[in-house]
Simulated scan of single mutants.
Amino acid sequence: MSIFFRLIISLLFLILAGCASTPPPPLPHTNLQSKDLSALYNKWVGTPYRFGGQTRSGIDCSAFVQVTVMSLYQLNLPRTTELQSEQGVTIPEEQAAFGDLIFFKTGWNQRHVGFYLGDKKFLHASSSKGVMISRTDNPYWASVFWQFRRLTTM
């Protein structure tokens, strides 16, 4: 199973039950079929980065997360990374799971977000290469890591 297919499968489990002291387990979501998941990945991979962009002609990280969550779950997330970082529940790094959101503080007042894939990889809209997969143990990303969050029903 490709990592991209696994990402989409994992995103199906983002809707979780309420807050708890330990992260709640994912709830199954069965509204999508595997062909829909492959199509979603194929639609976005390689899309160029554009600050403020929200379409296939260019998208930024928070719009990529917002559009993907809306496509999969019909859930509205805030438009900005800062507001997205307040959604769901905080997850300790050692409990982060495939499909959780991963956040970075990339500057004094700048934030970045993507989908954690497990195995120290995440999917995001990179400002230099567009929608792609990067490693969390890359020296840059490791130095600006902020938090993991798991979305819950909103």
Results as ranks from 00 to 15, higher is better:
R56W: 02
A125C: 05
L11G: 07
A20R: 11
S85N: 06
L7P: 01
T81P: 06
L77G: 06
D100A: 06
L117N: 10
A20C: 08
L123A: 14
K129A: 12
P23Q: 01
A17H: 12
R111C: 04
V69M: 05
G46N: 03
R50Q: 14
Y140C: 05
L83G: 01
D36V: 04
S128P: 01
I9A: 03
P92L: 10
V69W: 04
F13N: 09
F148W: 10
E93D: 09
G107W: 07
L83V: 00
I8F: 12
F13H: 15
Q147H: 04
Q74T: 06
G107D: 00
T68P: 01
Q147M: 12
P26C: 01
N109M: 05
D137R: 02
I15T: 09
M1K: 14
S143F: 10
G107I: 02
W44P: 00
I8S: 09
F145V: 03
Y73R: 12
T152Y: 07
C19F: 11
W108R: 14
D36R: 01
F13T: 11
Q54C: 01
G114T: 03
L151Q: 05
S57F: 08
I133H: 14
G18M: 01
L12Q: 13
V65P: 02
G53Q: 07
F148S: 07
S10F: 03
L11C: 02
T152L: 15
T47K: 05
F5R: 09
G52R: 11
F64E: 03
L12D: 00
T136R: 07
P78F: 07
G53A: 08
K43V: 06
E93V: 09
L16S: 13
K129R: 15
I9R: 12
S126V: 02
E86N: 09
S34N: 14
F148Q: 06
Q84I: 00
S21N: 13
I8P: 01
G130K: 08
Q33C: 09
L40S: 02
F5A: 10
M1P: 15
M132E: 15
L7F: 06
F51Y: 15
T106I: 01
R6F: 09
C61Q: 01
R150N: 05
S10I: 04
F64R: 04
C61A: 08
I133C: 08
L7I: 04
F13C: 04
I3N: 11
L11Q: 04
D36S: 04
P26T: 01
L75Q: 12
S126F: 03
F115I: 13
F13I: 05
G52V: 06
G118L: 08
L32R: 14
I3S: 10
Q74N: 14
Q147G: 02
Y116W: 11
V131G: 03
F13E: 10
F104K: 02
T152C: 11
G107Y: 03
G130R: 07
Q95L: 14
